[in-house]
Design a protein around this nucleic acid. Structure first.
Lengths: 334, 334
DNA sequence: CTGTTAGCGCCTTCAC
DNA sequence: GTGAAGGCGCTAACAG
């Protein structure tokens, strides 16, 4: 299956290959009539540029690597959708890889992207090694959603501390003083920020936080459910789950116990995903503007690639928004 | 940022560039000791293959194009996740493009993929032009989820007719004789199949289907909600929504009306997505095995690319599975 | 089993 | 404003 090349277009238009190249892409270097003739010729014989040849010649590529943990989680899907939208508008392509939050997979993917000579990668990093290795090889990196110590690269984050603080304040404002926090990780900036916001709200309100109300679990709905069961032993009047996956488990457990939400117990989540407005009562949660987060990542990366930015590392913090729905209400009288 | 090339590895290992190439990739064409030496050298100087150069030379690529309508819809996200999983295992990469179900975007994306010289594309086609154009240019195409008249290419489908029939039979078995169908499109094989299954179940049960019970709407939850309102005027005792988006609208309307599900009316969906098991009552629906659908697409495409298949067009039909949950129950006494 | 040679298709000098 | 020449990094074809 042989496809037409610039040579063929050149012959058809009666000009040289270099003129074809200029007429088709470089701006201003060809007279208008030649340009038209070349374009017509290209169209006529069905010429399609060869990215591989162009990339080889110019040592770049318009493919951008996107490394995420789990496309089936709406958070990552939205993030990827935002990234893709922005890349497409700029005529870049998105090479999407699921690394399942596995360091080895992540590293393998990074190597593949190196081989593709992508100019940049957006990653929700599992370890700092991956972003670092990419940068050591001259690839621009934007870390999305979390910041790792010594990962380097630009970062786009949701302001987790502010979001969690606002959410916690909302509950405190409703009279809750025993608020349980269901959380999986606090090593990454994501969980750490949410925990910090949770604590900060307590401090601001002069409330002593019973450490037993912080329930550590693993990133999986079933585990969250069991942890919620334990947490209920601490007699909280409200529960915050640190992300959308944990919220599923928490909700399942509360429903299973036939606890009236929010009359007997309030439930709030972090990271708004569609199902939270479909359940009854709908869940109070923090919207991370995930799609916009993705768009920001892409814009930042593209600016880097075009060298429009000062070398200094940039950290973009996207303000989240508290969405109050029916699942949170006044604390029950003791 | 100059990266090491085969030349550099060759010098380091004391062999020729072609031997490096063979030792690194082609199997069996280099003696074990040379192979080891070359690998060690490559590792030592941090050599990474250049896909662009290889693709140019060998006129192939290991990137596969995936064209879908909307990554934020869990159906497409799951499909993409299944595809990516299988491609990654085979050391292929996924270039993912959202076309927003817009024919122009779809065509633009197809041209980009042509420029990338991808050997194959998986697409949820909006028009037949896109798959056809790709095939005319020697690209293997697998159409996912729907079959378009004269699109050509292999197809991987959920057996929509069987699924809808089984779901309808389930309702008929519960005594429902006025079942409303909320559906958006019937031009594509997807909607057409579901409608056909719905009709077939009625025929099998010797039930005359009141055509007013088929409510056409557009692909959007809000529209579905309004259509549901109208449909309720026809006094159905059960409603089937033809996909996950329409189901949101239908559920919202029923809840808004304070109709007891399933006591006053049964609700069932098509295409199982996570929220359907979180709402109360959980929705009876048909699981399309979407991730597996995606895997099938990728496997089929890869087999094509490796020329392991007879030229004849292949149509894979994945059997869906009825999931009965709490939202469907006996028809209320008239 | 290994080396030499010759491009893949493009674009960027450099001349004119 | 346009053409000629060369080479990006790799591997297929051909010798040896």
């Amino acid at each position: 299956m042989k496809r037409p090349t610039v040579q063929d277009v050149a012959r058809e238009a009666g000009v040289s290959p270099s003129t074809v190249s200029r007429a088709l892409h470089t701006r201003g270097y060809a007279s208008p009539d030649v340009r038209d003739r070349v374009r017509a010729a290209a169209e006529k014989i069905g010429y399609v540029l060869d990215h591989n040849a162009r990339n080889l010649r110019s040592r770049t590529s318009t493919s951008i690597g996107v490394l995420i943990s789990d496309l089936r989680n709406p958070f990552y899907a939205d993030l990827a959708a935002g990234i893709e939208e922005e890349l497409r508008a700029a005529e870049y392509q998105m090479v999407l890889v699921n690394d399942n939050a596995d360091p080895a997979e992540e590293m393998r993917a990074a190597e593949t992207l190196l081989a593709m000579r992508v100019p940049g990668v957006i990653v929700t990093p599992v370890t700092a090694d991956c972003p670092r290795m990419l940068q050591d090889n001259g690839v621009h990196v934007v870390c999305a959603d979390r910041e790792l110590r010594r990962s380097g690269g630009d970062v786009v984050l949701s302001d987790n501390k502010a979001g969690a603080r606002e959410l916690t304040e909302h509950l405190i404002g409703l009279g809750h003083s025993r608020i349980g926090l269901l959380i999986d990780e606090t090593k990454w900036s994501t969980g750490a920020g949410r925990l910090a916001g949770f604590r900060a709200a307590h401090v601001d309100a002069d409330l002593t936080l019973d450490e037993n109300l912080i329930a550590y679990t693993s990133f999986d709905a079933e585990a969250a459910r069991r942890t919620t069961r334990d947490l209920l032993g601490q007699q909280p009047t409200a529960i915050i789950s640190a992300n959308n996956v944990l919220a599923q488990g928490a909700l399942a457990e509360l429903k299973d116990r036939r606890l009236k939400i929010p009359r007997q117990i309030s439930l709030a989540a972090y990271d708004d995903v569609p199902w939270m407005s479909l359940v009854e009562p709908a869940l109070t949660t923090v919207d991370q503007h995930t799609v916009e987060l993705g768009r920001s990542c892409a814009r930042l990366l593209l600016a880097r690639i075009r060298e429009e930015l000062p070398t200094r590392r940039r950290i973009v913090r996207v303000a989240p928004r508290l969405i109050i729905r029916g699942s949170t209400g006044p604390a029950p009288r003791a």
